[in-house]
Design a protein around this nucleic acid. Structure first.
Length: 105
DNA sequence: AACCTGACTTCGG
DNA sequence: TCCGAAGCCAGGT
């Protein structure tokens, strides 16, 4: 059975454990297209609501939230902090500590 | 059916 | 550190 990139990406996002985060590129890589990071953002836009995806656990490669202020940034930060994730002074997250490894699953 | 757009990433300069 | 360009998918116009 051939699952679409979006379908796989959606499944992967659902698997991100509580208290962990994943990057767009990481999801894209696991879904089979290392260069399709942009599509991951698209998945979140189109499916996070109807499929109950833990969208707040997806951040960019720099370990920072990609949402602009007043466009969800504050909300995402709050949700992550509620899961025990600590933000650095510059607003980034220590990926060595919080990045999800597929092996954790 | 062509064209546009996204919460991105990587690479080169 | 910053900027531009290329690469990828799917849904809306």
């Amino acid at each position: 059975m051939n699952y679409s990139f979006s379908e796989l990406g959606k499944q992967l996002i659902k698997q991100i454990p509580y208290g962990k985060v994943a990057t767009y590129g990481q999801i894209a890589t696991y879904a089979g297209n290392p260069r399709a990071a942009r599509q991951v953002a698209w998945i979140l836009h189109s499916s996070s609501r109807k499929h109950n995806l833990p969208w707040h656990r997806v951040i960019n490669s720099k370990g920072r939230i990609s949402l602009p202020p007043h466009r969800g940034y504050e909300i995402q930060k709050k949700l992550l902090e509620q899961e025990g994730i600590i933000f650095e002074e510059d607003g980034s997250i220590n990926l060595d500590t919080y990045l999800w490894h597929i092996t954790d699953y």
